[in-house]
Amino acid sequence: MEKQRICIQSVSQDVIIGKVFNDLFNIIKQSQQNNNNVVWDFADTFYLHPFLLFPLAVYRYQNNIKCINIRENTNIQKYLELVCFENLFDIKDNQSLEDKLSEYYDKSYIPISSFSINENLLKQLQTPIQTIIERQCRAEKISTQLSYFIGELIDNIREHSSADKGFIFSQYLQSEKCLNICIADNGITVLGSYYKTNKYLDIIHNNPAIALSQALNGLSTKSKERGFGLSSSKKMLVQGLKGAFFVMSGNAFYRYDLKLSDKEQIIPLNEEYYWKGTVVLIKIPVPVPQEFNFYNYIE
């Protein structure tokens, strides 16, 4: 049976962010309608926004999607190769990570990387990656916030996702003066985490959108003193740094971007848009606003 061909259209930096997600969801839907028996055709692609590029790479990795016309397309071939779109950068240990990533010091990105969820690897992951990101964007006073965001997101994967794989990517867009950081896992989703711990099911009502909203509000599956990771990160990023925060988990999509709306919004997604695991996409404007005070946001 011939595989369904899905054309991957270019989504550039300067389009509205909504188009990025609209295209992403359409690709996921078309792929899942065909049980992932599809090929993604890059013949007409010349640029992909990081928030489209990263989820596509992770989806392709998880579902073994075949891509065509990458090598034939000189506009995109080198770029996809450099960011490791088809062959994710495999983070195995700290020593090799520092050595391997050293070639990215003068780039604007780190490659799309996968890593196993084990304690020894996770605790060695942050420093080398963060060092490179800081060096690439050359921003002052960004170190503490980066530690906070990346640290809380990675710890959340470890504590709640039951995933065996994590994924990370970052790209600094000079023209937009912003740093885009993407972190994902292949775990049980936010809803699944509440079910696994048998917590707050009377509030959640088997609804992934409600589950995601509760998690983002800080309702922890562990204890009332916990649950600050996501809730404080989104507040710090959007209200403090004037950035943007997006999450997909199972059948729910969250967006918080003051350029779009002053409200935090969750859009429920039907089964055809299902995302296996959770992906967090954050946009950090550079430089850090003068008036920003980290301590106002750690509660």
Binding site: A209, I210, S213, L216, N217, G218, L219, K224, E225, G227, F228, Y254, K263, E264, Q265, I266, I267, P268, E299
Partner: peptide, 15 residues
């Protein structure tokens, strides 16, 4: 947080 507890405020709208 341990001494004073915390208040969870829901500002998220589900569309």
């Amino acid at each position: 947080t341990h001494n004073n507890g915390r208040q969870i405020i829901n500002n998220i709208e589900i569309l």
